[in-house]
Simulated scan of single mutants.
Amino acid sequence: MTNQTYPKNAWYVAAMSEEIGLEKPLGRTICGERIAFYRPSENDIAAVLDFCPHRGAALSLGYVEDGLLVCGYHGLKIGEDGKTKEMPLQRVQGFPCMKSYAVEERYGFIWVWTGDQSKADEALIPHLEWAVSDDWAYGGGLYHIKCDYRLMIDNLMDLTHETYVHASSIGQKEIDESPVSTQVLGGEVITSRYMENIMAPPFWQAALKANGLADDVPVDRWQRCRFTPPSNVMIDVGVAHAGKGGFDAPKEFKASSIVVDFITPENDDTMWYFWGMARNFKPNDDALTDNIRDGQGGIFQEDLEVLECQQINLKSFPEYDLLKLNIDAGGVQSRRIIERIIQEEQKSSKQESTANNSATTSGKNEEIPLQTVSF
């Protein structure tokens, strides 16, 4: 079996909707697959292997015309099914079909299934209530990070690092002084930390003020991180005026949000990080959405250097076994779920391969003539 590091039979966020226009495709590698995304029409999305069957050029460097993806090298036109439709002065019936991918546009994101296409089920795309409710507002962005995607999962499932990496914004000493609990519920992992009767850090002081609440009084603060395969982490975070119920406090006493983290492997050593924050207070305040997005983007920027240097260290010193402390339990349990999914995929793939080989050898061997293309 190959040393697979990420599940393939899963929906991954590949892009934000606004990244893909009507005329220009987007080339992006997802789970080791080089994919060209494009819009056959305004409300449709397609994804094919980013490889022209003529000379191997990147189709993503071309353009879209009449619903077809046009190679920018010699004008070959390919459809969303991966089949060549036409090419100047050429007969294209014998051209090989390129791989196409199950792809969906939902919640302002482009989702792609990189594994066995027969198993792609749209119902498996997670429901995001904050993305469809008028009671919520969302703002976010995208970072390309040079690290194993699992390091980001570790980072988000243990927020102890906030005290040190994000000291000027969301960090405070009470975080690493408060115990953290970890639960595995079905196929998800949840880590929780609660801090009572403390002063809010700068980011949450600003959020309280933006919500019309006093920002200079003691608060109860919470962090509830939820990992969902293949690599999504949603974090319930917030503060409420102390003694008003904490996480369960009425809306008029708290400022709370969901930190949205879609973590998509590019390959073994790099990843796409779709980050954002959904909030359920003042959802129509666009200026507030912009301010929160800018602040959150700066916070996540602080993680990048840490994670990329961590990746370099781990590659340079593979003989070192990392410590596993109680604060690491969320990341450790998440990795175990990922490993189990990968093992199940590989086992299923091996069984299918064995069955196909048996069916082939038990039947009559036929010689299939090679197709040639006349020039």
Score class of each variant (00 low, 15 high):
residue 1 M to S: 11
residue 5 T to K: 15
residue 6 Y to Q: 06
residue 10 A to F: 05
residue 13 V to F: 13
residue 14 A to W: 03
residue 24 K to S: 10
residue 28 R to C: 08
residue 31 C to D: 07
residue 32 G to V: 01
residue 41 S to G: 10
residue 41 S to V: 00
residue 43 N to R: 13
residue 45 I to V: 12
residue 46 A to E: 04
residue 47 A to H: 08
residue 48 V to F: 01
residue 50 D to L: 02
residue 51 F to S: 10
residue 52 C to E: 01
residue 59 L to G: 12
residue 60 S to Q: 07
residue 65 E to D: 13
residue 67 G to R: 03
residue 70 V to I: 09
residue 70 V to W: 00
residue 71 C to M: 06
residue 72 G to T: 12
residue 76 L to P: 02
residue 84 T to Y: 00
residue 85 K to D: 11
residue 85 K to Y: 05
residue 85 K to T: 13
residue 91 R to F: 04
residue 92 V to Y: 00
residue 93 Q to Y: 01
residue 96 P to W: 00
residue 100 S to Q: 07
residue 102 A to D: 09
residue 106 R to F: 04
residue 106 R to H: 06
residue 122 E to W: 04
residue 129 E to K: 11
residue 130 W to F: 13
residue 143 Y to P: 00
residue 154 D to T: 02
residue 157 M to G: 09
residue 163 T to Y: 04
residue 169 S to D: 13
residue 172 Q to I: 07
residue 182 T to V: 08
residue 186 G to H: 02
residue 187 G to I: 06
residue 189 V to Q: 09
residue 192 S to Q: 08
residue 198 I to A: 05
residue 203 F to P: 15
residue 203 F to D: 15
residue 205 Q to W: 01
residue 211 N to E: 07
residue 222 W to Q: 11
residue 225 C to E: 12
residue 227 F to Q: 05
residue 230 P to V: 01
residue 230 P to H: 02
residue 231 S to C: 05
residue 236 D to E: 14
residue 240 A to M: 11
residue 246 G to H: 06
residue 264 T to C: 08
residue 265 P to R: 03
residue 265 P to A: 10
residue 268 D to M: 01
residue 270 T to P: 05
residue 275 W to F: 15
residue 277 M to G: 11
residue 281 F to R: 14
residue 289 T to W: 02
residue 289 T to S: 05
residue 293 R to Q: 10
residue 293 R to W: 04
residue 297 G to R: 09
residue 313 N to I: 14
residue 315 K to Q: 14
residue 318 P to A: 12
residue 321 D to G: 07
residue 322 L to K: 09
residue 327 I to W: 08
residue 331 G to A: 12
residue 334 S to H: 01
residue 338 I to H: 00
residue 338 I to L: 02
residue 340 R to N: 13
residue 342 I to C: 15
residue 345 E to P: 04
residue 351 Q to A: 10
residue 358 S to N: 08
residue 361 T to Y: 06
residue 364 K to D: 10
residue 367 E to C: 04
residue 373 V to N: 07
residue 375 F to S: 13
residue 375 F to R: 09
